[in-house]
Design a binder for these strands. Sequence first.
RNA 1: GCGGAAGUGGCGGAAUUGGCAGACGCGCUAGCCUCAGGAGCUAGUUCCCGCAAGGGAAUGAAGGUUCGAGUCCUUUCUUCCGCACCA
Length: 841
Amino acid sequence: MDYTPQDLDRKWQQRWTDSGAFEVSEDYSKPKFYCLEMFAYPSGHAHMGHVRNYSIGDALARMKRMQGFNVLHPFGWDAFGLPAENAAIKHGIHPEDSTRGNISHMKGQLQRMGISYAWHRELATCDAEYYKWNQWLFIRMFERGLAYRKRSSVNWCPSCTTVLANEQVVDGGCWRCHSMVETRDLEQWFFRITEYADELLQAIDGLKAWPDKVLTMQRNWIGRSEGARVRFALDGDATTQIEVFTTRIDTIFGSTFVLLAPEHPLVSSFANRAADPAGFRQQAQAFRLQDKAARMSGEIEKQGFDTGQRAINPFTGQAVPIWVANFVLGDYGTGAVMAVPAHDQRDFEFARKFGLPIRVVVTPDGKPVASEGLTEAADAYGMLVESGEFSGEPSAEAQARMIAVAKASGFGEGTVQFRLKDWGISRQRYWGTPIPFIHCPKDGLVPVPDDQLPVELPRITEFTGRGDSPLSHVPEFVNTTCPKCGGAARRETDTMDTFVDSSWYFYRFADPRNAQQAFNPEAVKYWLPVDFYVGGVEHAILHLIYSRFFARVFRDLGMVDHAEPFTHLLTQGMVLKDGAVMSKSKGNVVDPDDMMAKYGADALRIYVMFVAPPEKEIEWSDAGIEGSWRFLARVWRLVDHWCDGITGTPQGGFEGISPEGRRLRRKTHDTIRRVTVDIEERQQLNTAISAMMELVNEIYAFSDATATGAPGRRAEGTIVPAEGPEVVAVVGEALSALVRMLAPFAPHTAEELWERLAGRDGLTTASWPVFDADVARADEVVVPVQVNGKVRGRLTVPVDITDADLEALALADAAVLPHLAGKTVKKVVVARGRLVSVVVG
RNA sequence: GCGGAAGUGGCGGAAUUGGCAGACGCGCUAGCCUCAGGAGCUAGUUCCCGCAAGGGAAUGAAGGUUCGAGUCCUUUCUUCCGCACCA
């Protein structure tokens, strides 16, 4: 090879850039394909995870392009976020400067990889021309009641000094720095994602091309439960009611006490009535703190105390004690539960610990059971007992009737409860989209008028990391006038969660430079939904649910005509080294730049795609990339030595072609089929590559069989060229297909070889090789012949043999299989469209 | 605990609808070519017996269906991932 790999990479990257090979426009005459990899946070350096992600996406994009699709394959930057701001606090570099620098460096890395991006459509979320539309959409959502403000107890990370979304709290700690999360009460902005909870859940069934794992995670996250709300009046105070949520209203006759979450609003009023209000509050507060933090260390012990108050069970009329319990969640359901110790394990443990009564009201056979001997709760459905007029009814029927009774009597109703909560998007941070609202002393909360958007993020100079919003220290930003009354007013100083930025960027790519609209609906109608979306499974819940939510918001604004933005989702596995995620602190980082310098981009790309299926984790191996390098070198040599004189590919059938030639032709077409199916339908890129390797081996074997001189005697890696029209045609066909199929995986090498082979460049516009089923399945197949279930021989028969012909053949071929002479064919097995076995009796 | 995915050579992994298990690659062995080999080419490489031809066993374990099971069914063990006191 007279190039270094980098020379080769640079040569073709330059040509692609100069010709704008991957830039696209809306072309309604061509079928579109929108291939997207999750855009990147500009951390500074591309890592192997990026390499893998973009190599997979690029394989799809390039293949679809060759198949004649108009392919949109864009890239951008998720450029706002905490790390840049934290770096600013630590090192005094302005987030804008570090972010721009990082983007520039990483863009260079991606370009050196030769990913076929439409760079003209590049966007960064920190550009005002992008985040303007965050603000615009925010106001639209406000107008529709989908964005609202409320005072709420929020998760506060003391280290990042900011509010976290529920989704950003992992095991009681901050998702980013893992500090223990505290609670604080603040006025916050929320998106009413719960409005779409039911739809988001039901539509999951329609996501046929998403991984099951992701669908399950989303179902669990939304967490739909059907049940009932029932109001218990306070004993001695009918005006105060405690509403509980239950999925088992059929067990309500067994509810012997009521439990409140420590956060429940009634807890503080009960404290005032307690003998020792201070002690009461202290206990409740202890639970509240415990609730957020203590769960990290596994199970926490069930604790509680008696409020001294009693509630009236509306079904039994009995007064039951009200306790505060540490395991009752304040932010799920109503924050209060009716405890049924006989039929709920948690309540059972609590009752046993504190000596509270247990009543069995559901049994398998409808016969009453005493509670004394119980060792655990029985949560199965059954027949009701000891339940007044409902005794003897099966659980399911009783549930329906009890809900009806509760509703008619006005103390309850059936309801659906979701685990999903509204999305808190306020961040007390600088490096994000300013929330476009103005607080006016006279007019209250006033949205910034559309013609004043964007509200630009001012360039501040001091980063202290203090607890409140950095923007609140910028008087020029804060002080403004009210758009309504013209009086002095203050701007909102919180910024938006960066998940807002990433929830719609895939729409902006359809029309990224539009200054009048977030996007032109016509362009989005052409390009969207995204046909193929690749990214890490770590975004299975947050990013993907938020994006599905935003798609529905745009739909309801009349801007898009679909609800699901991503048709096909692929979640790629991580790249590990020595069994662990690569990280600087572990010192096990393999730098993509080093690998590309040594082997070129193609060997690296081939390696990350060949080593395992895309969804699986892979373990980095230096020997593995050597193997990929060797494969490319093998292809290179093959083309180098055969290309002279190959001008065309064979037409038609097999007339006059040697058995070896027929074999190679079959292999060529079988490979086209396998590679096409593996990429397109299965995204099994590893087997697509191995199929091409097989073809390469086959071409080498063909040269052995047809070469002049002794087979297998080739010095210095040369291949003795065979001669004759057959070789030219058969090998020409094989190499032509091979090089084109190589393009999605090793585009630089493929381009170069295509130029040598076909005498022209422009592989990016070359067509995908056409599979010829007649060729692939031509001639014959070898089938096992079984006698009494044992394979006793093999017959080579034409693929399309009929049963009758086969029977005759089995008998006639006694010379080959003498022990079958005189036997009859009992069964012919055909599978996958071909004959696979003959059973002889 | 609930849910999801998966258990195949020394290693990564193939096996598309139930049809020659171990493709392809790594590693290893031998040969060729070489001053040399960390290049290239050829051959071999699941395990056991055998010089070989050949024979036997084998896809976590145990059963079952089938002419035929890595694949389907039942039971069971293990690992990874997600959620986790959600009433």
